[in-house]
C-alpha cells in the first residue's frame, strides 16, 4: 500500500469528542479483556470461593452460635460466614483495584501513553472499578445461591435485595478512599502487592468476616470502628439475616457511618493522591516500577 493512501487519512480534520461514558466503557472492556486472558486465574478464583463456602458450611456444624446470636446475627454461623465471603470481592475491589491499575499500567509501560492523551486517568479508574464491580456481583450472586442451596437461613426478597444493592454501593463508596490512598502509596513506594495484601487481611480480620467483632478485646475493637467495612458488613448481615430494609434503625445508623467515612475520606484521599502524582511527575518516576 502506498504512502499516498495513508496520507489521505490525515487530510480531514475531525474534531469530535468521545463521550465520557463511552471512554469509561472502553476502559472497562480493556480491563475485562486483559483479565480474561488469564483464564486460569479466573477459574482459580471461582474454585477457591466455592471451596471456601463449603469449608464454612462444614465448620458451622461444630460451632455453637451463641456468640453470633448474642451479637445480633441470628442462629446460623453458616449464614454469618457466607455473607462475609459473598461481599469479600467488593472489599478487594474497592481496596485494591486502583492500586492494581496503577501497578499494572506501570508494569505494562502504558501509564505514560495514557497520560499523554487528553483523557484523565479518572476514566481508567472508573472503568476498572466498574469491571471489578460487575465481576464481584457475579460472585455475590453465585455465593448467595450456593448458600441458599446448602440451606443458609438468609432472607432474600425484593426488599432485602434492593437494600443489598444500596448497601454494596455504599460499601464501595466508603472503602474507595482507602483504595485511592493506597494507590498513591504505590506511586510513591512502588511496592504494591504487600500494602494491598495487608489491607485486605487487616480488613478481613478487624471487620469480622469470620467471627463477630464482639469477640475482640475492647482495645482491638477500637480498630474495627475505624474501618468502614465493619459497618457495611454489619448492615448487610443484619438485613439479609432478619429480612429488614434500609429503614431499620440499626442499618440506618450503619449507613450514616458509611456516608461520614465517604465524606471525610474523599477529600483527604484525593489530596494525598494529587500530591504524590505531581511529585511523581516532577521526579520523573511515573513510568518506573
Amino acid at each position: 500500500m502506498s504512502v499516498e493512501e495513508a496520507l489521505e487519512m490525515f487530510k480531514s480534520k475531525v474534531s469530535g469528542q468521545v463521550p465520557f461514558r463511552e471512554k469509561v466503557l472502553a476502559s472497562m472492556i480493556r480491563r475485562a479483556k486483559i483479565r480474561l486472558s488469564y483464564k486460569t486465574w479466573i477459574i482459580f478464583d471461582f474454585a477457591n470461593t466455592f471451596f471456601m463456602v463449603l469449608t464454612y458450611f462444614l465448620l458451622a456444624f461444630i460451632i455453637t452460635p451463641e456468640d453470633i446470636s448474642r451479637a445480633g446475627y441470628g442462629p446460623s454461623y453458616f449464614a454469618f460466614a457466607l455473607i462475609g465471603i459473598a461481599i469479600s470481592h467488593y472489599v478487594t475491589a474497592s481496596l485494591r483495584s486502583l492500586s492494581m491499575t496503577i501497578r499494572l499500567e506501570q508494569f505494562y509501560g502504558t501509564i505514560e501513553s495514557i497520560l499523554s492523551t487528553p483523557t484523565s486517568f479518572i476514566v481508567l479508574f472508573l472503568g476498572d472499578i466498574l469491571y471489578f464491580f460487575l465481576y464481584s456481583t457475579i460472585f455475590l450472586v453465585l455465593i448467595l445461591w450456593l448458600g441458599l442451596f446448602l440451606g443458609a437461613p438468609i432472607i432474600l426478597n425484593l426488599d432485602t435485595a434492593l437494600t443489598l444493592c444500596v448497601l454494596i454501593v455504599l460499601l464501595m463508596l466508603s472503602n474507595l478512599p482507602i483504595g485511592i490512598a493506597s494507590a498513591a502509596m504505590i506511586l510513591k513506594f512502588k511496592q504494591g502487592n504487600p500494602i494491598g495484601w495487608a489491607l485486605t487481611w487487616i480488613n478481613q480480620f478487624f471487620a469480622g468476616t469470620f467471627f463477630p467483632i464482639t469477640l475482640l478485646p475492647t482495645e482491638l475493637r477500637a480498630i474495627s470502628f475505624l474501618l468502614p467495612l465493619t459497618f457495611s458488613l454489619d448492615a448487610i448481615r443484619y438485613s439479609l439475616i432478619w429480612g429488614v430494609n434500609l429503614l431499620h434503625p440499626r442499618i440506618l445508623s450503619d449507613v450514616i457511618y458509611m456516608v461520614i467515612y465517604a465524606i471525610i475520606g474523599y477529600p483527604i484521599a484525593l489530596k494525598i493522591f494529587n500530591i504524590v502524582y505531581d511529585d511523581a511527575r516532577k521526579r520523573g518516576e511515573l513510568g518506573t516500577y
Binding site: 469530535g16 469528542q17 463511552e22 472502553a26 483523557t119
Partner: peptide, 16 residues
Amino acid sequence: DNLMFFAKLHNVPRDV
C-alpha cells in the same frame, strides 16, 4: 484493541 482504546482516549469518534 490497543489502537481502538487509545483512539477513544484521544477523542476520535468510532467510525473515524
